[in-house]
Design a protein around this nucleic acid. Structure first.
Length: 881
RNA sequence: GGGCGAUUAGCUCAGUCGGUUAGAGCGCCUGCCUCACAUGCAGGAGGUCGAUGGUUCGAGUCCAUUAUCGCCCACCA
């Protein structure tokens, strides 16, 4: 039973996690009869390391799961990882590079094998880190987006969408990363404002009658120009439409056309049109039947269509084009120009709009249903304002480019026939063409966007397309907990896919929490020097303190700047709890046996703390129901420290240190243990380790591990309003006396005498009943209760409604200090009184405010006036001294 | 160009349905190693809630305007 006086997390955390996991405490059983509660983890990348964002995200989920598990739900938290196509491929490519090889050197098959090897050995560190964080994930069910079952789900979804005409192949402009050499979807392109230039270039007329001027930010693309466009309403240029220009450097004849896309105000009002390298120009080209000339290869070098520039990198080409134009006198000017430039979200290379054949999901029909699901409340966003963001995107959504020119991922299950060109898409790999029967068929070499498989996560992890018991019991999941940064990438797509394939939403609630920017975070952390590594924090302060800090921070807006000081503060909280337990165990003794509490045996302070415990339970439940993690954590902190420790443990010392075999002491021990056990339960979802360790020491035989124990329920027998109010007055009395002691610098060793002049029966009652506690807690020697007392000038005084308190301090009192103290109190009382008077003098207030509010103010006025009178009387006596 | 958010104590942040005296942690000041805890105890200082106007008996809270900062989205070359 001996406990160290300082709590050491290292000794308990690893131990308990091992026990929980080893005992199957995290496992949810689809065969049980309990109500389901389920969450799927946002699968971290297999390349990932636990950063602050993960820590927050998973702490919150663990709090919910542990809470619901204790409430008796069949609580499933599904673990797993994402294969993270581009990110992972990049990691292994980098490794190869260190060996002086490229992926093309080793070939596709060997490369993919290599990635799997990497995954087995170096990947998935985050699983260990999630264990370190205490996450009660059902590891037996762990999934990986590329494992067999999930691949089957992906195949099934692809085939069905294809058959429904919702997946198609198209030749169009997409976002191309020349470094990753793959297409990206629109949302995988991150725009950054860059300082660029607007180049004004002369394009001469064929008939040598002069030139026009176009403005462009990417001069090298002129190699692919096939027209120049003006706005049809632009009177300046109307007469030029239809004329022919000679494209400089290339000497191609191109027409001047009119298209309403062109903005008259911008640049010169004339736009060079490059259909193969700009999405807008592509559209213009379609409208005017312009040729599409692709001038780049997949690495971003100029191709054979670029004539003399062939083989140059796109940026070298830009330089050379500009130089050549300059030397030919065709460059009018270069203006500074800031514009948003797309970058690859994985390698941050500048994206090139690029023509290519890709696979797309026709998204509108899926999006419409997904919009409805949120509109009609089948899915609820918390906080609600995120719904607006969701709608905004969904209503303007464009088809989703799902093919990637990568090797790591789900291979697209489309087979091309060499003979007839037909595409065969089947659930199983076909051996011959559907159309002509030819056996010369080749599978598409591309893989699917990583987010395609994560879109299926809520049901693919549960065994879909099989009709499993797991699906039946746990789908739809109860809540999705995530950051707002992946609402488009992931949340929206899960909703669409869930509705399409499960005919039901994937989750009821979407809780969007604050965002902690990660290691790349130039945006926030690094530049401000605020990078905090969660693993270092757990090592330094313990996981429980760290988790508690995250929970209490969870209310704030978008960015979290975690202060280490704060974590340190909650480590102190752990220690406080630990020592409270030490105190209780020391005093309860080894032969203690708990029993039912009997209402009649409960004394005032017992009733008070039990009443407060009821409040705490109710409040924590209400807060968690609404995902107000910070309020719940705050309440727990308050209750433990400022109610249980600060007051109840102190109150109870009189009884424990007195006649230890008395009935009163026995009751105190029973209440201590009762409250402790419930308070530890409340703590568990937030601080799983220390709470389990404490529980181990207070639980009875027959009681389970805390993680599996029952969640506290408020006990209606403990609704002790009257005792709670009386205790508040008691606390105020103690506080007033301590205030006198503190302000007048009366040393703790110096015990004082106190005289009470209670002006009402209830007050007399309280003072009488609690006098021994007042003595102990305010360090008072003797208490005199008398209404005939005539205070001496050298008495310090405190006044509360219906009671005056005097502390005779002959010889000790510092008159100036006491005057100062009284002045302060008088000033405050006066200010309050003035405010209330003004209110009550306002006829409108008295007439219109609810009677209840008015009465309150009137009562308060009466009390304050009496208090002020007494204070001023005291002050007047002192004045002469 | 649209949309969203923030602005409250020295610092980092809470503040629900508008209702007595606006809270916490850290930091600061004073006094305490009191037999659970100095990672502690007791007491204290510190805020005209970004600005202006409005609604209301009453505004940190609701509305409008505005300033500063931040984020997301967007095809003006």
């Amino acid at each position: 039973m001996e406990l160290a006086s300082v709590y050491d997390p290292k000794q308990v955390e690893e131990k308990w996690y091992r026990i929980w996991e080893g005992s199957g405490d995290f496992h949810a059983d689809e065969n049980d009869s309990k109500e389901p509660y389920s969450i799927v983890i946002p699968p971290p990348n297999v390349t990932g390391n636990l950063h602050m964002g993960h820590a927050l995200n998973n702490t919150l989920q663990d709090i919910l799961i542990r809470w619901k598990r204790m409430q008796g739900y069949s609580a499933l938290w599904m673990p797993g990882m994402d294969h993270a196509g581009i990110a992972t491929q990049n990691v292994v490519e980098r490794l190869l590079k260190e060996e002086g090889k490229s992926k093309d050197d080793v070939g596709r098959e060997a490369f993919v094998k290599r990635v799997w090897e990497w995954k087995e050995h170096s990947g998935g560190q985050i699983q260990r880190q999630l264990r370190r964080l205490g996450c009660s994930l059902d590891w037996q069910r762990e999934r990986f987006t590329l494992d067999e079952g999930l691949s089957k789900a992906v195949r099934n979804v692809f085939v069905n969408l294809y058959r429904d005409g919702l997946i198609y192949q198209g030749y169009r402009i997409i976002n191309w990363c020349p470094r990753c050499r793959t297409a990206l979807s629109d949302i995988e392109t991150e725009y950054q404002d860059l300082k660029g230039a607007l180049y004004h270039i002369h394009y001469p007329f064929r008939d040598a009658s002069g030139h026009i001027t176009v403005a462009t930010t990417r001069p090298e693309t002129m190699l692919g120009d096939t027209a120049v466009a003006v706005n049809p309403d632009d009177v300046r240029y109307a007469h030029l439409v239809g004329k022919t220009l000679i494209l400089p450097l290339v000497n191609r004849e191109i027409p001047i056309i009119a298209d309403s896309f062109v903005a008259k105000e911008f640049g010169t009002g004339m736009v060079k049109v490059t259909p193969a390298h700009d999405p807008n120009d592509f559209e213009i080209g379609k409208r005017h039947n312009l040729p599409e000339i692709n001038i780049l290869d997949e690495k971003g070098y100029i191709n054979e269509n670029g004539g003399q520039y062939r083989g140059l990198d796109r940026f070298e080409a830009r330089k050379k084009v500009v130089d050549d134009l300059t030397s030919q006198g065709l460059l009018e000017k270069i203006e500074e120009h800031n514009h948003a430039v797309g970058h690859c979200y994985r390698c941050h290379t500048i994206i090139e709009p690029y023509m290519s054949k890709q696979w797309f999901v026709k998204i509108k029909p899926l999006a419409d249903e997904a919009i409805r699901a949120v509109e009609d409340g089948r899915i609820r966003f918390v906080p609600k304002n995120w719904e607006k963001t969701y709608f905004e995107w969904m209503r303007n959504i464009r088809d989703w480019c799902i093919s990637r020119q990568l090797w790591w991922g789900h291979r697209i299950p489309a087979f091309y026939c060499d003979a007839c060109g037909h595409i065969t898409v089947e659930l199983e790999d076909p051996v011959k063409c559907d159309e002509c029967g030819s056996e010369n068929i080749q599978q598409d070499s591309d893989v699917l966007d990583t987010w395609f498989s994560s879109a299926l996560w809520p049901f693919s992890t549960m065994g879909w397309p099989e009709e499993t018991k797991t699906l039946k019991k746990y789908y739809p999941t109860s809540v999705l907990v995530t950051g707002f940064d992946i609402i488009f990438f992931w949340v929206a797509r899960m909703i669409m896919m869930g509705l399409k394939f499960m005919k039901d939403v994937p989750f009821r609630d979407v809780y969007i929490h604050a965002l902690v920017r990660d290691e790349h975070g130039q945006k926030m952390s690094k530049s401000r020097g605020n990078v905090i590594d969660p693993l270092v924090m757990m090592e330094e302060y313990g996981t429980d303190a760290f988790r508690f800090t995250l929970a209490i921070f969870a209310a704030q807006g978008r960015d979290i700047i975690l202060s280490e000081k704060r974590i340190e503060g909650y480590r102190a909280f752990c220690n406080k709890i630990w020592n409270a337990v030490r105190f209780i165990l020391m005093n309860v003794g080894n032969d203690f046996s708990p029993r039912e509490l009997n209402i009649d045996e409960l004394e005032q302070f017992d009733r008070w703390i039990l009443h407060r415990l009821n409040d705490a339970i109710t409040s924590v439940n209400e807060s968690l129901e609404e995902y107000r993690f910070n309020d719940a954590a705050q309440k727990i902190y308050e209750f433990w420290w400022h109610e249980f420790c600060d007051w109840y443990l102190e109150m109870v010392k009189n009884r424990l240190y007195g006649e230890s075999s008395s009935a009163s002491a026995d009751t105190a021990r029973q209440v201590l243990i009762y409250v402790l056990k419930n308070a530890v339960k409340l703590l568990h979802p937030f601080m799983p380790f220390i709470s389990e360790e404490i529980w181990e020491r207070v639980k009875q035989s027959g009681e389970k591990r805390l993680i599996l124990e029952s969640w506290p329920v408020p006990d209606s027998r403990f609704a002790f309003e009257k005792e709670a109010r009386a205790t508040d007055i008691f606390k105020e009395i103690v506080y007033k006396i301590r205030n006198i002691r503190g302000e007048l610098n009366i040393p703790p060793a110096k015990k004082a005498n106190v005289v009470f002049c209670p002006k009402a029966e209830y007050m007399l009652d309280i003072v009488k009943k609690t006098d021994s506690y007042i003595k102990a807690m305010a360090k008072v020697e003797n208490i005199i209760i008398s209404n005939d007392y005539h205070p001496a000038k050298t008495d310090a005084a405190a006044v509360l409604s219906d009671c005056e308190i005097y502390v005779p301090l002959a010889g000790l009192i510092d008159v100036d200090k006491e005057k100062e103290r009284l002045e302060k109190e008088i000033e405050k009382a006066k200010a309050d009184l003035a405010r209330i008077r003004a209110k009550l003098a306002n006829k409108n207030f008295v007439d219109k405010a609810p009677a209840e509010v008015v009465e309150k103010e009137q009562a308060r006025h009466g009390e304050l006036a009496a208090v002020l009178d007494t204070l001023e009387e005291r002050y007047g006596r002192l004045k002469g001294m």
